[in-house]
Each structure stands twice: as C-alpha cells, then as structure tokens.
Amino acid sequence: MIWEVFRQEKSGDYHKHCGNVHAPDREMALLFAEVQHGRRKPTNSLWVTPQKEIGEVDTEDTAFGGTTDKSYRWAMTYNFEAAASEVEESESEQATADRERKAQIEGGS
C-alpha cells in the first residue's frame, strides 16, 4: 500500500508533498517516512495519508477560475483613488499572483 508523505520544514509552515512510501499500515508508513523523507532535509513534522484517499481534480476536468471575465475578484480592478498602504500591499501581492496565473495559462496553452 502506498502512503503519500507531506513534510513541514518548521513549525507553522504548510506540510508540502514530498513523495511517498510503501507500507502496510500508518504506523509503519510513519516509521519509514521518517528515514526516507526526514533524514536529510530540515523537518519539523511529517504527515502520511493513504494514496487512495486522495481526491484529485485537474485541468482536464475543469477550467480553474472559470473562463469568463472575473476581474472583479481582484483588488486592482477597484483602483479609482489612492489606496491605504495595507491595501496597496495586498494589491501588489494579488498583482503578482495574477501575473503568475496568466503566465501559467499561456504556458499551458
């Protein structure tokens, strides 16, 4: 049975997928993951989950974010007047995310 492994580098970080291990049950999966995925890289915590329990939806199944204009979702669409500094900060984050998303769509097509 295959267990997917997620590693958290330090407390508070997200657990990120880092690979998998073969093991008969959860206890052995953790034991193996500790060596296989936690012995060389900085590790604060590991999660294991049965591969078959993971659900997936991908670009073949759906168009993530929709296909029509949804610019109302983005803060910079509402840029009528000078914004407070917190808003500007959030805007710049979103602008970056938007660029990355567009680049991904172009790269993918």
Partner: peptide
C-alpha cells in the same frame, strides 16, 4: 524485504 525497510535498517 522492501526499499523502505532497506533504508530504515541501513539508517
């Protein structure tokens, strides 16, 4: 017996 047990034991 398996790659995993191999790594664990070698470790």
């Amino acid at each position: 017996p398996t790659l995993e047990s191999d790594l664990a034991f070698s470790n």
